[in-house]
Nucleic acid binder design. Structure first.
Lengths: 227, 227
DNA sequence: CCGCATCCGGGGCGATACTG
DNA sequence: CAGTATCGCCCCGGATGCGG
């Protein structure tokens, strides 16, 4: 991207990650860990393939992304974030938090959705409301044939793709209904009215509460400037 | 801007503020408060005037910026941030913090600089290292004829344009030397070797230390999603 | 199939000139 | 002072091709 030509930390940051699609590519790499080109493309509906290749090259030059050749069993190229790239997590957290109000009305007519995107709000915004109780796991099916597991883990909430062995609850429905229910904007009755199917004990939902975001990453991100 | 078409809070946020120059316009409004068009243009060297007008219109539609006609004495149009726009402060804080390493090598050959940009790193990254002592004020002259005052205030650090009545120290030099000295990367000898002139008691510098950023704005920014 | 490269049309952006 | 008008360019989007 063309530089803003301003001696300002914000402008310098935008010189590097201000291009279109760049921060969304970082999002995918944060959500998925080391990823193949094709998987990135799949998690970024709407991106042109040449643009993805261009951005990955630029991010590699900026030492935000590293390319590694996976070991023989897979024998494919993997893209992963460097520590500098991981340092963008607090930026995406804050920007995503600011964008939450734009989600409450539900998706626009042509909006795409990927279940993996649920992992970010779950881990960034939810905490285990009853840490002393045994852990629970819920399975979420949001329509793209890739179920997600959201579970309490030592007081916090974690999420990963896949099926749960013995889920305490299973949620099936639109992203809008699922997000509304988990965020506490909808109660179960309201979510059901929006088409959500809920199997399991409703009390499981009480385990997932809003909490202060995990700020541990923030303190670590400011170290490079202190001598 | 063209929408990413993804039902994801981060993508929705970038739909609104992801355009080129937009976040830098927010920076200026955060630094200056309500501003006239010409002052914004001056704080954004390199922007095309039609782009500034376009962005201000879009930001007004998005209810991030409000336009108000100033009272008779000035009789000019003012642009100011709405609460929604103010909510972007944590985003800029994190992005700027991430961009700090790109500042340590000094400005690029054609980089522009404005003294007001010093206010952000001063207030976001510095704290008063000796809050029990009487307050101090330093005056900084970074070459654009608009001196800044940086002072301790009840344990924290504040900054505003103008001259100090009785400054405890006066710093004159390049932005690179001043930033390096205040951030602790350079000691006074090193900063002087880079051309910085320092008048006053060097011990005043010890009052300005790195500290945890003021996180009060963060807690307030996440309220709209909790019922 | 994976990881791109090439080509092309359209629009966002940059620079300058001009105006109420 | 606060913009609008104009014009060229390059970034972006979409499609297709292609070597490993």
């Amino acid at each position: 991207m063309r530089s803003y030509g301003q001696y300002c930390a914000l402008a310098k940051a935008l010189d590097v990650v201000g291009d279109r699609w760049t921060l969304l590519i970082i999002r995918e790499l944060l959500l998925r860990g080391p990823s193949r080109y094709t998987d990135l493309r799949n998690g970024l509906p709407g991106i042109a393939t040449n643009l993805l290749a261009d951005r990955l090259r630029e991010l590699e030059r900026a030492e935000i992304v590293a390319r590694e050749d996976a070991p023989p069993p897979v024998a494919s190229t993997l893209f992963r974030l460097t520590p500098r790239g991981e340092g963008l997590r607090p930026v995406l957290d804050e920007l995503g938090r600011w964008g939450v109000p734009y989600m409450t009305e539900g998706p626009a007519p042509r909006d795409e959705f990927r279940s993996r995107w649920l992992a970010w709000p779950a881990e960034a915004f939810l905490v285990d409301g009853e840490p002393a109780q045994p852990p629970v796991a819920i399975e979420v099916r949001a329509g793209d044939d890739e179920p997600m597991v959201i579970e309490t883990r030592a007081g916090s909430v974690e999420s990963h793709p896949g099926r749960a062995g013995h889920p305490d609850a299973v949620l099936t429905g639109t992203p809008h209904a699922i997000l509304g229910l988990l965020s506490g904007r909808f109660d179960l009755a309201r979510a059901r009215a929006l088409g959500l199917e809920y199997e399991g004990d409703p009390r499981v939902l009480r385990r997932f509460r809003h909490g202060a975001p995990a700020d541990t990453a923030k303190a670590a991100a400011g170290t490079s400037a202190s001598r």
